[in-house]
Each structure stands twice: as structure tokens, then as C-alpha cells.
């Protein structure tokens, strides 16, 4: 084997190695805790990569938001740019759903039992949803420009499968997180050693929402 052939093989192997390294998903865990160290569920966590990763597909599923017991469920949602929201009214009354601020606007009446799918939301930003009939109803969706996102579970955790190397910024967002932009961030360089990240919130998050489901009488009108 001549030197040229050896070098060609080596280059080939190196290419395969680096390709494998790039695509090898690395589990990465983020944990969100409150000032007392207790886990906080339903926090949006998303990771923005600083380098290009080929071959990662965008999410195209519809994000389901129900109108249930005169409230938006879930209260907090997260989706990737280009995804749509599917609203499903499981109440037997009509709701008039709107988003009136920002660039992802929509507005429609939804009768009991019916559903509506929005256009794909193309603008990464916070979407505040309301009902024009039941003013106390509110819900939020954060549109992110990254495929790496999730909401914390009861243990305050979100698990990601990230491409194994590179620099990332991790964000934690919640509509009731009272800091600039309702979010905190940390930039990390991901290598094989760092496998988790803890976010401690500067304050507790208020109870899930002010949406009220306690209605002993359900036939109130707009008089």
C-alpha cells in the first residue's frame, strides 16, 4: 500500500468518524428548580445550537390545545416555527379564541365539540391566547426556532437528544416568570462530560393560571 492510498484511507476514516460524532445523539438533561430547590413542572426549556447540524428534521406535528372547562389546556405550550396549533373545544359551549398581538395572529369562533387548525406559526415569539366570550380564559404558546424543546415534567426535568458536540444556549421560559423576556438562559459547551444542567429560578411561579373552573352554575350570559 503506498502512502497516497494510506492517506486516502485515513482521510476516509476520519470523515466517517467525524460524521458519526456529529450524528451521535447525546442524552442531555435539564432540571428546573425553584428557590427552595423543589422541581418546577410545566416550564418551557429549549436549546439553541450555535453550529449547523445537518439532517435534523423539523417538527411538523400539530400542537393540541383544548378548551376544557372554560380554560385553555395546557396553559403553557411550546412548538417549533412552522408547526400549527390544533384547537379542540371539548366544552359544549362556544368559545371565541384569539391571539391579537405579535405576528402569529388568529381569531375564530369554535362551537362545542369542534376543532380548528391554525396556519403554521412562522414567527418565533410568545403567543398569548384568549377567549372573547370568557375573558378569564388565557393560555400561552411559545414558538421557538429550534427542534430541541420541551416542557418540564413533575420532576422539573426535560430530556434532550442533542448532537454530541458544540455550543448551545439553553433557555427556560414561562409566561409568569417575572424576568426580562420571561426567560433565563445559560450557554454551555457540550462535550461528553457535561450531561445535565440545572436552572434555579429567582422566584416561585404563581399557581398555574388564574383561569377559574369553579362554576356552580354554567348558564351565565353577557347581560
Amino acid at each position: 500500500m503506498n502512502l497516497q492510498t494510506k492517506l486516502t484511507r485515513l482521510a476516509y476514516l476520519l470523515t466517517i468518524y467525524s460524521f458519526c460524532t456529529t450524528l451521535a445523539a447525546q442524552p442531555f438533561e435539564t432540571v428546573v428548580i425553584d428557590p427552595d430547590g423543589l422541581p418546577v413542572p410545566d416550564m418551557v426549556v429549549y436549546m439553541v445550537t450555535h453550529s449547523k447540524h445537518e439532517g435534523i428534521e423539523s417538527n411538523v406535528t400539530q400542537e393540541l390545545v383544548e378548551q376544557k372547562n372554560k380554560s385553555f389546556f395546557p396553559f403553557v405550550n411550546v412548538l417549533q416555527k412552522g408547526q400549527s396549533i390544533r384547537f379542540e373545544n371539548t366544552d359544549d359551549i362556544t368559545h371565541h379564541v384569539y391571539s391579537v398581538a405579535g405576528n402569529n395572529r388568529f381569531e375564530f369562533k369554535l362551537r362545542g365539540g369542534e376543532q380548528y387548525v391554525t396556519q403554521p406559526l412562522q414567527h418565533p415569539e410568545e403567543v398569548a391566547m384568549g377567549c372573547n366570550i370568557h375573558d378569564w380564559m388565557s393560555g400561552f404558546a411559545l414558538v421557538v426556532d429550534t427542534p430541541f424543546f420541551g416542557k418540564t415534567d413533575v420532576d422539573g426535568k426535560v430530556n434532550f437528544d442533542l448532537p454530541a458536540s458544540g455550543t448551545y444556549t439553553a433557555f427556560v421560559w414561562h409566561p409568569q416568570l417575572e424576568v426580562t423576556g420571561n426567560r433565563l438562559s445559560k450557554t454551555i459547551i457540550l462535550d461528553n462530560k457535561l450531561a445535565s444542567l440545572i436552572f434555579q429560578l429567582p422566584q416561585k411561579i404563581k399557581p398555574a393560571s388564574q383561569q377559574s373552573n369553579s362554576s356552580e352554575f354554567e348558564f351565565l350570559e353577557d347581560y
Binding site: 371565541h96 384569539y98 391579537v100 398581538a101 381569531e107 384568549g130 372573547n132 352554575f217 348558564f219 351565565l220 350570559e221 347581560y223
Partner: peptide
């Protein structure tokens, strides 16, 4: 629907109750 500032306008025309009662809300 409300504006970005949360201002909502409603216009009504016809025969209707003046909004006085807080009992007759059903």
C-alpha cells in the same frame, strides 16, 4: 376582539335591556 392594548369595543343596535341588573345574568 381586543386590540394589542387590551381595548375591546362592542356595539349593539336594536331592542335590549339597559345594563343595570346584576341579578339577571342568565
Amino acid at each position: 376582539v381586543p386590540s394589542v392594548n387590551g381595548i375591546r369595543v362592542t356595539a349593539k343596535m336594536g331592542l335590549y335591556y339597559p345594563k343595570i341588573s346584576i341579578e339577571n345574568v342568565s
